[in-house]
């Protein structure tokens, strides 16, 4: 098979996969709520496609900050970030707002959505996991 043929096969396979994932997402209330929360609170900076902005806002796609340790991800959401962060070999300086005002359910929903959509389908974040991290926040 030619190289283009192989690429096209991959492409079709990929499209089927995307269709399958989005069909699942359409039915999943957690992801539906998460998507709405993402649009409202996150997309302005991290962009609708989760790729961030060169020089200014780090991407959510393809980073261990999203797909890795859940407790770190939850803490970033609840506390924001006030120091430089290095993502994919680039340093970012803009502080990130704290989203402490989101409820435990809202926090779990939006993080589950972010991990599903941008973290390669990493495992969901539970309400309990959010509650555990919230208790540890400095008063």
């Amino acid at each position: 098979m030619s190289r283009v043929g192989i690429q096209l096969t991959f492409l079709v396979w990929g499209l089927v996969l995307v269709a399958e994932i989005s069909a699942q997402q359409e039915k999943n209330p957690v992801l539906l709520r998460g998507a709405a929360l993402y649009q409202k609170h996150c997309a302005a900076c991290h962009q609708a496609d989760g790729k961030g902005v060169t020089r200014l806002i780090p991407p959510l796609v393809g980073t261990d900050y999203v797909s890795g340790d859940k407790s770190r991800l939850i803490r970033i959401l609840l506390q924001g970030l006030n120091e430089p962060i290095v993502v994919q070999e680039e340093e970012y300086y803009s502080p990130m707002a704290s989203f402490q005002y989101l409820s435990d359910i809202e926090s779990a929903d939006v993080l589950t959505y972010i991990r599903t959509r941008f973290g390669g389908g990493a495992s969901p974040v539970s309400v309990k996991e959010v509650q555990q991290q919230r208790k540890k926040l400095p008063k």
Binding site: Q7, G14, L17, V18, G62, G120, G121, A122
Partner: peptide, 17 residues
Amino acid sequence: MRTLFFVVLTGLFQSFA
């Protein structure tokens, strides 16, 4: 497995772009 699909897909789109 889902992660692998995702990585392959992202790579493919980037090379395509």
